[in-house]
């Protein structure tokens, strides 16, 4: 027998709260069109504040600036500068073994004299026509 439970619920909830909640749920407060516009404007403003914007070109040197940007800006410049400095340093003070290794690839000064640029002259030298 559940009379007791029914009476207790009736006393606790004399109005139909669940029905009221359901009604309210079906009719939520709607944002106005103006509010939606303001929220979206705020969103765009926030994006503009954090998204890097393209810097205006400097007058007089647009092509240089363009090349600079095409190469990747300052990060790339740092890499290129480092590479250039290492090249200069290797030229001034090459480490041991570097010259020998380079010679094996590109040859030495002596090798240049051994190149026979006019093979037909060999006979003329042999016969004394050329000194």
């Amino acid at each position: 027998m559940n009379w007791g439970i029914a009476m207790t619920e009736r006393k606790f909830d004399p109005v139909d709260l669940d029905h009221l909640f359901a009604r309210v749920r079906e009719h939520p407060a709607q944002p106005s069109a103006d509010l939606m516009k303001r929220v979206l404007t705020d969103a765009y403003d926030a994006q503009a504040a954090v998204t890097p914007v393209t810097a205006p070109q400097l007058p007089g040197a647009p092509w240089l600036l363009q090349v600079f940007r095409e190469l990747g800006g300052w990060p790339s410049m740092a890499g290129l500068t480092t590479a250039a400095l290492v090249g200069v340093w290797l030229g001034i003070s090459p480490p041991d073994g570097l010259v020998a290794t380079a010679d094996s690839f590109f040859g030495t000064d002596d090798d240049a004299y051994l190149i026979d640029v006019a093979p037909e002259a060999t006979f003329e030298i042999a016969e004394g026509f050329l000194q």
Partner: peptide, 10 residues
């Protein structure tokens, strides 16, 4: 904006 503004408003 469309997804959250109505919920927040309600």
């Amino acid at each position: 904006t469309l997804r959250f503004t109505p919920k927040v408003m309600a």
